[in-house]
Amino acid sequence: MASIVAVIASTHHPFYYRASTATGDDRPPFADEWTRKILAFRETLTRAKPDVLVMVGSDHFHQLWLDNMPQFLVGKAPMYDANWYNEEREFGLPRMRLNGHEDLSAHILRAGLDEGFDLAFSNELRIDHSITCPIITLRPEADLPIVPIYTNIFAPPLPQPSRFVKLGEAIRRIIEQWPSHLRVAVIGTGHLSLELGGPRQFGPHGPDPEFDRRAVEWIATGDLDGCLRAVSLDSLHAPGNATHGFMDFMLMMGVAGAGAKADYVDTLDLFHTMEAYFTWYPNGAPA
């Protein structure tokens, strides 16, 4: 059976690419520290020697639209073109192309449906920065096949937070039942407190540093019970109007497992939002 060699949860900050590649007067003052932290985080994936990446993210109204909106969608395609014109325009992100792993996609879809998750699928999916940001930070060679999984954290009505956790737990079981010798890393990105298009956006820190502190504690200690008691679809409006992206972190806590302490934890307090990076090694840390 396949093995899950790393579970990684991260924020996805579309400004990292531009900040880390900028030089001279264009280079922001926080770029060096940010790059150092990303290189250390990247090493946690490299050490695990993965063969295939399952990538959990959320389309930002690029391909998925309100006339036909899935709650959870699995990509099943041999290739994925990546990044969109408006991400090029606003963030300077490069166009990319990633190979898919259709056999694992098919396995996740079949087993997920059989477990009671009515997963949508896409055979032609252009992925966006929720998935390419962690490729850029964690595997910039972009040389491993992926299975993209999109969640709806964006267009209400949304699934409940507990549903994200349950899907994460199911993804863990399903991958571990995949008849393959391959080493799988599961990588998911979301947000801590975040405000987009509202009065609290682009402040000197994230809109709710206290929420961020508690969130990092829940994730780092695997405190799913505490997190689920504190977080609801209604409560997530308070830390910032885009904070429902935290549910992708909750999904990843489900993949890591209740009570699983992260093997690697790091944060970076930036303008607008706090960055946070977590890695678990389900089978023990690699040598």
Binding site: G198, P199, F202, G203, H237
Partner: peptide, 23 residues
């Protein structure tokens, strides 16, 4: 970030709960 900050400042009179965005 001049425009982004000004954009937020023009919304400063708004408080929670924000207008419903469900469609």
């Amino acid at each position: 970030l001049e425009y982004q900050k000004a954009y937020g400042a023009k919304l400063a009179h708004l408080s929670l709960p924000y207008p419903d965005i469900a469609t």
